[in-house]
């Protein structure tokens, strides 16, 4: 397989109405499979959240990462995604989340580390244009000198790679600390005493509304790689809805690693 470049693909944009956390997890699985099978062109999907969520990584222990009682008390849905990486605390309006569903050929011959940087080069460029000097912090963070902005994760399925990223726009750090258990081992490595200080959100760094940042990101992607407006097909949404109920809202998946 020869590596392809972004311009060799017909990129599609999906930016749908707010959806439930379990449905977002299912859409990632369905859409990466659609791209792998060649039934869907490579796609950028911007997420809108219908409710608060904690999203844990594929290989994380539910009990080690989440305070279930506090999450329930705040009405926060806990879901497990199909990619590795760390737990994310999400409230609607507080994050910018997107997925790129790409053919494996786009990252052919690249190391994992290089492929993460490659998949988000357009975001680094978009942030620069907004006045944020951001860079890729291996293995899977986007950061500026002020603090971490975003975390990325990838999962490969057949002939496609899912690359998804959650960026902090604003954050209720106190609530985050109530629902996420962040171990001392991790904090010690980051050289910080406070988990809240590890993240510096885009709102304070840009002063821009969330929608304006998203619009600029979409423009940047469109200019660099080409992008046509698209929508979820009925069969994609139907499959994802079924999968959301049978798998992602089901404890046998969420608590697979208790």
């Amino acid at each position: 397989m020869t590596r392809t470049n972004w311009r060799e693909h017909e990129w599609q944009l999906i930016h749908d109405v707010p959806q439930a956390p379990a449905l977002h997890m299912a859409l990632d699985e369905v859409l990466v499979e659609e791209v792998s099978a060649g039934r869907r062109p490579p796609t950028l999907r911007i997420w809108e959240w219908a409710g608060p969520a904690v999203v844990i990584g594929r290989f994380q222990s539910l009990r080690n990462e989440v305070d279930a009682a506090n999450a329930a008390a705040h009405g926060i849905e806990v879901v497990r995604r199909i990619s590795g990486g760390g737990a994310m605390f999400i409230e609607p309006g507080n994050t910018i989340t997107y997925s790129v569903y790409a053919p494996l050929s786009l990252v052919e011959g690249l190391s994992f580390e290089q492929s993460y940087a490659q998949m988000d080069a357009w975001v680094i460029a978009a942030l620069l244009e907004l006045g944020i000097m951001a860079w890729y912090q291996p293995l899977n963070d986007i950061t500026s000198h002020i603090g971490k902005i975003a975390g990325a994760a990838q999962a490969r399925r057949g002939n496609a790679v899912l690359h998804h990223v959650t960026m902090a726009y604003d954050i209720d750090a106190q609530k985050m600390l109530q629902v996420l258990r962040i171990g001392r081992e991790k904090l010690a490595d980051k050289g910080t005493q406070s988990a809240a200080k590890r993240v510096d959100p885009l709102r304070s760094q840009t002063g821009l509304p969330r929608e304006a940042i998203i619009a600029h990101m979409i423009d940047t992607f469109r200019q660099r790689h080409g992008l046509r407006d698209d929508h979820l097909r009925e069969d994609e949404l139907a499959r994802a809805s079924t999968l959301a109920a049978s798998k992602f809202a089901n404890a046998s998946w969420t608590a697979e690693l208790p």
Binding site: F59, Q60, N64, G85, G86, G183, P258
Partner: peptide, 25 residues
């Protein structure tokens, strides 16, 4: 990334184990 291990010992051996963490496989 962080590697987390929860395990149980029985008769001097690892009798149950769960590896978890924020790594990628």
């Amino acid at each position: 990334k962080l590697v987390v291990v929860d395990l149980d010992l029985r008769d001097g051996q690892i009798a149950a184990v769960q590896v978890s963490g924020d790594f990628f496989l």
